[in-house]
Structures are given as structure tokens and as C-alpha cells.
Simulated assay, not measured.
Amino acid sequence: MSKTALVTLGLVSVLSSSVFAEENKVPEPTANGIAFPVNYQDWDIVSVSHREDHKSVRAIIGNKIAVEAVEKGQTNPWPDGAALGKLVWKARHDEHWKPAVVPGEFIHAEFMFKDAEKWKDTAGWGWARWLGTEQKPFGKDAASAHSSCIACHTPVKNQDWVFTKPAILPKRIR
């Protein structure tokens, strides 16, 4: 089994359980006014990633509009209404299977919401991040909440500011 498959299996099992310490408490909106997407658990996995430089594993999820865009190959640009989420954990090696890289401590949840008109000053995306299991909103003000995201995503501005390459999945059975 490949490392990616192992990470995917680990992430899916973690996603099926509650990640947050306080259940049923909606985190505060970010400084730029973005509300926490309370229904993100119903989103589908779009991809997974393992950042060696950051020593983290990530599940990248998308709302229905984002998943349909992936299925149609319409992700550059992403359609308005698409939302992508990234759930990030420190990477660790499984104590029972040392070659397996699995999620450890939860770091943060970050989301991108596409609305070319609403977010025209921030590359058409509303950027938001909540830190730790407490889901503390990131950023002291609207500018700081967006600026660090945009600075990081600048290398992929020609990919509509999105790093994620959707994973190839079997056709959906409906």
C-alpha cells in the first residue's frame, strides 16, 4: 500500500470522528467576517497532501459545487460558490506500523470560498483559518486574515490561487 493510500485511510478515519474539543459550539467568525462552515463534515474529499517541510498531513475537502467542478474538470478558474477546506494535522509515524504517516495533533482548519465579486480585492477568494482544536479565528484584522493566505498562494495565482491537484477517484456511484 502506498504512503498516499495510508495517509488517506488515516485521514478518513480521523474525519469520521469529531476533531474539535467542544462539540456543538460554532467557532467565532474570522476577523474578515467569514463564518465557520458548520456543514464542512458533509463535504467530500478532493485530495490529500503531505508537506515534508511543514511535517503535516492534510485532507482537502470541497463543498458540492467544488466537487462538481472537479468532476467536470472546471477548476481553473473555480466556479463561484465553490469552497475548499484543508484540515491539517502534524504528521507522525504510526506506532504499530512505522512506515505509515498518520495524523497526529490537529493544527488548524482553513477554508477558501470563491465569489469573484464579493472577494474581488482578494483574488476572488474569501480566506479563513481557525487554529487548534479550540478553533480560534486566525488574524487580528481583515487585512492580516487575508494577507498571509494570499502571500502563500501567490506561486499558484495562475491556477486560480489553489495548490490542490484533485485526486483521481473512482466514478461516483449514484
Rank of each mutant, 00 (worst) to 15 (best):
E134Q: 14
T75G: 14
P170G: 10
E105I: 00
I150N: 02
S17Q: 12
R129L: 10
Q159E: 15
P155G: 14
R174T: 15
W78C: 08
V26T: 09
A21P: 04
K157G: 04
A66G: 03
G81D: 02
S49T: 07
V7Y: 02
F106C: 06
W119Q: 08
K25T: 13
C152M: 11
K64M: 08
H54Y: 01
G104T: 04
W97D: 15
I60N: 09
V67Y: 10
E23A: 05
V14R: 06
A145G: 13
D44K: 01
F106Q: 01
P170T: 09
V70M: 00
S16L: 12
V19E: 04
H54C: 07
P155A: 12
K114E: 15
L169R: 15
Y40P: 02
G124L: 11
K140W: 00
N76W: 12
V102A: 07
E95M: 06
I45R: 11
A151I: 02
I150H: 03
A91I: 01
T4E: 12
K90T: 06
L87H: 03
E134T: 14
I173N: 14
Q159S: 15
S147H: 08
E110R: 04
L6M: 05
S13A: 15
P79I: 08
E22D: 10
A35T: 06
V46P: 03
I61V: 07
K64W: 03
W125C: 01
L131F: 05
H108W: 02
M1F: 10
I65C: 04
R92M: 07
E68L: 12
E71M: 05
A59L: 05
L6K: 12
I168T: 13
V57M: 01
Q135C: 14
K86Q: 10
E22Q: 10
V26I: 09
W130N: 00
M1H: 15
C149N: 09
I168H: 13
I61T: 07
I45H: 01
D94H: 06
S2W: 08
K118T: 05
A167D: 13
M1W: 13
A167V: 09
V102E: 01
V102L: 03
K25A: 08
N32A: 00
W43I: 09
A142T: 10
T30M: 05
G10D: 10
A82Q: 08
W125P: 00
T4D: 14
S148Q: 15
F138T: 00
T133V: 05
L169V: 15
H96E: 09
V88W: 00
K98A: 10
E22G: 06
V67F: 08
G139D: 08
K90D: 14
P77W: 03
G126Q: 09
D42P: 02
A123Y: 14
S18L: 04
N24D: 05
G104W: 01
G132C: 15
D80N: 15
W130I: 03
W130F: 07
A145T: 12
D53M: 01
G139R: 08
N39I: 08
N63G: 11
I65E: 11
L11R: 05
A145D: 08
T8A: 04
W43N: 02
R129S: 11
N76L: 11
